[in-house]
Design a protein around this nucleic acid. Structure first.
Length: 368
DNA sequence: TACGCGTGGTC
DNA sequence: TGACCAAGCGT
C-alpha cells in the first residue's frame, strides 16, 4: 500500500559494493556475451525491433524471425510503407501479434513526426505504441548509451536474489523498486553493457530454476546466495486457471477445390490474422451447423466428416477444435477483404495462427 | 490494478 | 502431462 521509501532503497544498496559489482558484471559480459544478430551494431531501429520481438519470447525463437524481418524491412521507411498483412505474415508463429501492429504503427509515427529518426528521449519514446517502461529503457541504454534502467523479468530475478528482495514481482509496482535501485546501481560509464550484462546474467547464469551460482561473476555480492536461499527468489504469485472454449473449425471446399478462410476482427485475440471459419459450440449445436453456415456465410453446404481434433493452449485459455470438412456448390457474396475462397497454392500467403496452420498443413499434405 | 494477449521449451 | 516459464504492453 505504500511505496518503497528512499531509506528502504538505501538499505538495499548498502548491501553491495557498487563499484566492484559494476566492474565484475561488465567484465563478465564482455567475455561471455552471445553473438546475436541485433548486437552487430547499435542501430536504434534494430535494437527496437529486437526488444519488441524478445518480449516474453526466447532468444532462440527470435533469431530467425529477426533476420528475416531485417531482410524484408531493413529500415523504418520499409516497415512504415509495408502492408499490415505483410508485417503480420513476417510475424506469423511468433505470437502476441499486437506487437507487430503496434510496432508498425509506431514506426509510421517516427517517420511522420521525427523524420525517420528513432527518438532518444523518454517522452517521445513513451508516446509510441508498444514501447513501455522496459523497452524505453532498453532503447535509451543500448542504442543511445543513456543511464536509464531497463527492468525486465531477468533484472527483477537477478536483483531480487542479489538484494534478497521479497516483493511479489508479479505486481506492477515491484518494477518501481528495481528501477529505484538501478538508478543508483547502473554504471554511468557504460549503461549499455551494464543493462545487457544484467539481462544476459539472468538468461545464462541466474536462471529461474537451479541457477549456476558457482559460475556467477557477482556471487560475492549476492545476499540470496549468502543465505542459501537464492532459489526462493524471486517471489511471483500467479493463479487463474484457463477457460476451455470448444469450436468446430470448418474446412469448406467449393467445386474448384478452393477453401473458405476469413479474417479475424481487428482487435482482441489474434487480431487481423486469418483462419478457417469457427463455429462456437457454446452458441451453436452441431445439429444446426448447416443453418449456421448458411446464416453466417450465405453458403449451402453438406457437412462431412471430422478431419482431426486440435487442442491449442494459449497463455490465458484453451481451444478444443474439431476440424470438420464441408462441401458447397455456391459462390461467395461477401467482402473478399474479410472472407474468401482461396486455392491451396495461395493459402500460404495469408498469416495464420499456429492452431490453424495445423489445419492448413493437413490440406497441403492431402494435395501432394 | 488485473487481466487479455501466443508460442515453444522444460521438467 | 500439465504447469510453469520467457528480454512486457495496452487497457
Amino acid at each position: 500500500m505504500k511505496n518503497m521509501t528512499t531509506k528502504q532503497i538505501s538499505q538495499y544498496l548498502e548491501k553491495v559494493d557498487i563499484h566492484a559489482f559494476r566492474r565484475e558484471l561488465i567484465t563478465w559480459f564482455e567475455s561471455e556475451m552471445r553473438d546475436l544478430p541485433w548486437r552487430q551494431d547499435q542501430d536504434p531501429y534494430k535494437v527496437w525491433v529486437s526488444e519488441i520481438m524478445l518480449q516474453q519470447t526466447k532468444v532462440d525463437t527470435v533469431i530467425p524471425y529477426f533476420n528475416r524481418f531485417m531482410e524484408q524491412f531493413p529500415t523504418v521507411h520499409d516497415l512504415a510503407e509495408a502492408e499490415e498483412q505483410q508485417v503480420l505474415k513476417a510475424w506469423e508463429g511468433l505470437g502476441y501479434y499486437s506487437r507487430a501492429r503496434n510496432l508498425q504503427n509506431a514506426v509510421q509515427e517516427v517517420v511522420a513526426t521525427y523524420g525517420g529518426k528513432v527518438p532518444d528521449n523518454e517522452e517521445q519514446l513513451s508516446s509510441l505504441k508498444g514501447i513501455g517502461p522496459y523497452t524505453k529503457g532498453a532503447i535509451l541504454s543500448i542504442a543511445y548509451n543513456q543511464p536509464e534502467p531497463a527492468v525486465d523479468g531477468n533484472v527483477m530475478r537477478v536483483l531480487s536474489r542479489i538484494y534478497f528482495i521479497e516483493e511479489d514481482i508479479a505486481k506492477p509496482k515491484a518494477r518501481k523498486t528495481f528501477e529505484a535501485i538501478l538508478r543508483e546501481l547502473i554504471d554511468p560509464d557504460n549503461p549499455s553493457y551494464f543493462n545487457q550484462g544484467l539481462m544476459e546474467l539472468g538468461a545464462l547464469v541466474c536462471t529461474p530454476k537451479s541457477p549456476s551460482c558457482l559460475l556467477c561473476p557477482v556471487q560475492a555480492h549476492c545476499e540470496g546466495f549468502k543465505l542459501g536461499r537464492q532459489t526462493e527468489l524471486p517471489i511471483k504469485i500467479t493463479k487463474k486457471k484457463k477457460n476451455v472454449k470448444r469450436y468446430w473449425a470448418l474446412v469448406i471446399e467449393n467445386t474448384k477445390g478452393d477453401v473458405l478462410i476469413e479474417k479475424r476482427p481487428d482487435s482482441g485475440l489474434l487480431a487481423n490474422l486469418w483462419q478457417f471459419p469457427m463455429m462456437d459450440l457454446s452458441d451453436v449445436d452441431p445439429e444446426f451447423a448447416k443453418q449456421w453456415i448458411q446464416q453466417a456465410y450465405g453458403l449451402s453446404v453438406t457437412v462431412g466428416h471430422k478431419l482431426t481434433d486440435i487442442n491449442h493452449v494459449f497463455s490465458h485459455l484453451t481451444w478444443d477444435l474439431e476440424v470438420i470438412r464441408c462441401k458447397t456448390d455456391d459462390s461467395l457474396s461477401l467482402d473478399p477483404d474479410d472472407v474468401c475462397f482461396v486455392s491451396k497454392t495461395h493459402i500460404d500467403d495469408y498469416p495464420f495462427p499456429v492452431s490453424h496452420q495445423k489445419i492448413r498443413q493437413i490440406l497441403l499434405n492431402e494435395q501432394s
